[in-house]
Amino acid sequence: MNGLTGEFARGVVRENPLLRLMIGLCSALAVSVKLESSLFMSLAVIFVLTMSNIVISALRRVTPENIRIPIFIVVVSSFTTIVDLVLRAYFPAIYSRLGVWIPLIVVNCIILGRAEAYAYKNNIIRSAMDGLGMGLGYTLVLLIMGFVRELIGTGAITLLGATLIHMGSRFEAPILAISFPGAFLAFGLLMGLLNKLEQRQRRAK
């Protein structure tokens, strides 16, 4: 794989930020309690990640090496503030659910990590693709986790007030799935499952 699709796909699978690079975990565990919050958090992260990658890449030739980190932070925190204010204004319910995690995007390791490791060294289009790919990798895991945890833990999936799936009244949802320990547990099991699949694939080759 090479070229732009390569940049894009890399973040989704091979260097998935959550499952492979082990960064950006905090928010992923916290917001994956519901599909809805996973979705909005992912959108916020994709936006901030892509935009800051673009801006940092664009400024990379004029950014002095020794103060690059503060500059990255200023860029990232500007976009984070935008998301913060937009969500607060238009989706107050979701904002209050996501709470601390929106402002904490600014220290989300994915974003600063990509800025430092990629955007600062590559051109704008590549950086944008990298941001999108990484964001999508994050989104993918978040959606799976959000879906599974919400479905098992509450017995139903609701999105923007509409109930999409309902397991029926005889299903007694284990609250464990949406609890704090459940987040770690689900994530650990998901990683184990992927490892298992990968091992099987490797053996098949």
């Binding site: 320990p181 459940g182 987040a183 770690f184 547990l185 994530f187 650990g188 099991l189 990683m191 184990g192």
Partner: peptide, 8 residues
């Protein structure tokens, strides 16, 4: 993965 289970 096992670290996550432990944390859980």
């Amino acid at each position: 993965p096992i670290a996550f289970i432990t944390a859980s």
